[in-house]
């Protein structure tokens, strides 16, 4: 860990517009700093700036950036109106980590790509221009969608996958004021600048995440992984399905573990929306989701795995609602 200056921020204003790196839970940043993958010169401890409340926002909810994952998952209104979010959070990490990890920090979580963590191998995300070791290397956990020739890393989290499906909005503030970013657009595709995970600009800070009004219906988060708990997703499917008179009146889908960002395919949702559920229809939706999917060798299995998991989730979500 490189030496750094530390200060405790008393309010967001102490951080916004500065070159300091905010640290909240620290569960990913300190992990990376110990490996010297991250080497910030200044750390701003944002644990005492407030932003730790969950409040009503019309029919929706505003979740402060410093709300801990545990509190968010256990919050009665979240469990009631946005159970998908609770389920996704609870599928991730461990009780200890969820007690520290924050809403804003979790959005900033970086990839688990083995080579990103290894200072002695090329990695365009860690050292732009050095190359991608995962291509042609061990890539079982890597992306099948939206990858580039420069990077095939995935976003590893669960919470953001649910937020994407729920059409959440990330509220940020920078030196030029506040702006909103759709959760689905918050993370970027790697393209030729994989060093940038997301759309947050220098000097900006995440203030909160807004959840729009509850959708009702069934909320399913199915996470497939190598261990039953305490493991990152190989593939995860977040789904909200509202049934009306035997048809799917509302469908929201997002996928984790398969791309550099939570993967959302409006065309697949449109295909299902208004239709009666059927295995054939689910399969066509999977076709739409997997449009352009490419394996890297070790991760080829994620393509059929995503299809099968999606089919099962849709079957479960529409079961008995005819």
């Amino acid at each position: 860990m490189k030496a750094f200056d530390y200060y405790r921020a008393e309010s967001p204003a102490d951080v916004i517009g500065t070159d300091a790196r905010p640290i909240a839970g620290g569960t990913n940043l300190l992990d990376l700093m110990k490996h010297q993958v991250e080497t910030p010169d200044r750390l701003a401890d944002v644990n005492h700036v407030g932003l730790d409340g969950i409040e009503r926002d019309g029919d929706g909810l505003r979740v402060g950036a410093l709300v801990r994952n545990s509190d968010l998952a256990a919050d009665p209104s979240v469990r009631e109106g946005w159970p998908l979010l609770s389920r996704a959070i609870l599928a991730g990490a461990s009780g200890q980590i969820r007690n520290r990890a924050t809403t804003g920090g979790n959005l900033m979580q970086r990839t688990r790509c083995y080579y990103f963590y290894d200072l002695d191998t090329p990695c365009n995300k860690r050292a732009p221009g050095s190359g991608c070791s995962a291509i042609g290397g061990v890539n079982r956990i890597h992306a099948i969608l939206g990858a580039s020739g420069d990077c095939i890393a995935t976003y590893p989290g669960d919470m953001a996958v649910a937020m994407s499906a729920l059409d959440a909005v990330v509220e940020v503030e920078g030196p030029n004021g506040r702006r909103e970013i759709a959760a689905t657009d918050f993370h970027r595709l790697p393209g030729d600048a994989p060093q940038r995970d997301n759309d947050l600009q220098p000097g900006e800070m995440i203030l909160s995440v807004r959840l729009p009004a509850p959708l009702g219906g069934k909320h399913i988060y199915r996470k497939v992984r190598d261990r039953r708990s305490y493991a990152f997703a190989l593939v995860s499917v977040a789904a909200v399905v509202v049934m009306d008179a035997g048809r799917m009146s509302t469908v929201r889908l997002a996928f984790g573990g398969v791309a550099h960002k939570p993967w959302r395919v409006p065309a697949a949702e449109a295909l299902l929306q208004g239709q009666a559920p059927s295995p054939d229809l689910f399969d066509r939706a999977a076709d739409a989701v997997l449009d352009g999917a490419t394996g890297q060798g070790h991760n080829d299995f994620k393509i059929p795995l995503l299809r099968r998991t999606l089919n099962a989730v849709l079957a479960e979500a529409t079961e008995g609602s005819k």
Partner: peptide
């Protein structure tokens, strides 16, 4: 242990990616 065939390195050399059984398993 996942070994990179290009240099023999152990890519999953930690307890997050080398999966010893956890309690729920």
């Amino acid at each position: 242990i996942s070994t990179d065939a290009r240099d023999g390195s152990f890519v999953n050399r930690d307890l997050a990616e080398y999966h010893v059984p956890a309690n729920l398993d």
